[in-house]
Simulated scan of single mutants.
Amino acid sequence: MSNNLLISVRPKFASRILSGKKTVELRRLRPKVSSGDNLIFYISSPDKNIKAISKIEKIVGAHLDVLWDEVKERASVTHEEFMEYFKGKDHGYAIYFSQTEQLKNPIKLESIKEIIPGFRAPQSFRYFSQTEMSNVLSMATA
Rank of each mutant, 00 (worst) to 15 (best):
133 M>E: 08
88 G>F: 10
118 G>Q: 06
132 E>V: 05
107 I>A: 02
1 M>D: 13
123 Q>D: 08
37 D>G: 04
30 R>V: 07
62 A>H: 09
123 Q>F: 12
26 L>V: 10
27 R>Y: 08
113 K>F: 02
110 E>A: 12
130 Q>H: 08
109 L>I: 11
92 G>R: 00
109 L>D: 04
2 S>P: 11
5 L>C: 11
18 L>S: 04
138 S>K: 15
4 N>A: 07
4 N>G: 06
134 S>G: 04
59 I>H: 02
45 S>I: 09
16 R>N: 08
24 V>R: 01
113 K>N: 06
31 P>R: 04
46 P>Y: 08
40 I>E: 00
88 G>N: 13
8 S>Q: 11
105 N>F: 13
3 N>D: 07
7 I>W: 10
114 E>V: 00
46 P>L: 08
70 E>C: 03
11 P>E: 04
3 N>R: 15
51 K>I: 02
97 F>G: 03
120 R>C: 03
62 A>M: 07
88 G>Q: 08
43 I>W: 01
39 L>C: 06
98 S>F: 03
19 S>G: 05
107 I>T: 05
27 R>K: 15
139 M>V: 14
140 A>G: 15
106 P>G: 10
96 Y>G: 03
33 V>I: 15
98 S>R: 09
93 Y>L: 05
6 L>K: 06
123 Q>W: 06
25 E>R: 07
94 A>K: 03
75 A>W: 00
28 R>Y: 09
29 L>M: 13
115 I>P: 04
45 S>A: 13
73 E>A: 14
69 D>F: 03
6 L>H: 05
93 Y>G: 07
126 R>C: 11
116 I>Y: 03
60 V>Q: 09
20 G>Q: 08
122 P>T: 02
65 D>M: 06
61 G>H: 12
132 E>M: 01
95 I>P: 00
122 P>K: 03
88 G>D: 12
4 N>P: 00
39 L>D: 00
34 S>I: 05
113 K>M: 11
119 F>I: 06
41 F>L: 14
102 Q>S: 14
14 A>S: 12
10 R>Y: 11
35 S>G: 14
126 R>M: 12
140 A>C: 09
117 P>A: 11
59 I>A: 05
42 Y>W: 12
54 S>N: 08
59 I>P: 01
2 S>E: 11
101 E>D: 05
48 K>P: 00
6 L>I: 15
25 E>K: 13
59 I>K: 09
133 M>G: 01
10 R>V: 08
29 L>S: 15
141 T>I: 13
32 K>I: 13
